[in-house]
Amino acid sequence: MRRLRTCFTGRVTAPPLSAPLNISFDYTRSLGPVLGPFMTGLRDRRVLGNRTADGRVHVPPLEYDPATHAPVTDLVEVRPTGTVTSWTWTDRPLDGQPLDRPFGWALIRLDGADTALLHAVDAGARERMHTGMRVRIRWASERTGHIRDIACFEPGADSADRAEAAGEPVTIMTTPIRLSYTHTTSEDESRYLRALAEGRLLGQRCPVCRKVYVPPRVCPADGVPTEEEVTVRDHGTVTTFCVVNVPFAGQRLDPPYVVAQILLDGADIPIPHLILGLPADRVRMGMRVAAVWRDPASWTTSPENIEHFRPTGEPDSPYESYQEHL
């Protein structure tokens, strides 16, 4: 049994806020002159290795010869049957793995190859796995030119599957990558977010340079935690800005709109935010603005409690008052 030590540091507060962060993209991998034919072969139920200058046949193929560094162009077809050279067993498959029931991972040397390929073996039970076992490819029913055209391997000494040439050469494979994280904030950031949930903007002053940071953080100039809490007003001055005219993925507003750096009264570092409530071409450096909060009933520990900033109608701040913040 593992025993765990716990350690408590710093002031006692509510635990830092955390939330899921999921990233997901379908990567498009261009394959080139070696991996392209290999993937094309898999689509057609053929396994192509290649032969390096020393005569060894590599499956999966190598793009460059490790000894001569030359491109490896000599493609060689090998059998869809092979021998397990190493294995392990997975009781609880992870998201994205070839099988969703317990299975074996194995290094498999296909007949005709000198190196081994990593793939899954649908053996049913751990007890059936052993080094030296004979396996054959189980092809996926739908094949696109992808390593997953091999659905998995299965125990067996021979194969009746026949290759079928079909279609254009494969040049690109698509690989989805989906990852889930928990993003954890610092204690300072959590205090800031909890204050936001109460409609307050919280800053903290650096004990060394005396500058007020919003949101609070370790002072990036001095490398020390900021500690003294300072309430900052939800009014401020536009230091600089850009007019976003370009549409892009994930955008929430229709262009054009203004994203500005806003120096809140009492803070020493600007925050970025939207300026709405006037035409984009009327926004000015030095313009006085105020936060427009959402309905208090919807407030959470989120900067989204502030919907945007609007002009206050006060006279513009003189350039000298914010020129140190550009």
């Binding site: 962060l21 990567y27 991998r29 394959l31 991996l35 290999f38 993937m39 999966p60 997975t90 992870l94 998201d95 994205g96 793995q97 070839p98 991972w105 390929l117 990593l118 793939h119 899954a120 992808h146 390593i147 997953r148 494979m173 690989t175 990558i177 990852l179 889930s180 994280y181 928990t182 993003h183 954890t184």
Partner: peptide, 24 residues
């Protein structure tokens, strides 16, 4: 601990012939 480490590390493997199988 932010992600599932053994799954994240699958992305260190060859992105064409190994990582798409997510070997942990």
């Amino acid at each position: 601990s932010a992600g599932v480490l053994r799954r994240v590390l699958a992305l260190q493997l060859d992105p064409y012939v190994a990582a798409p199988l997510w070997p942990d």
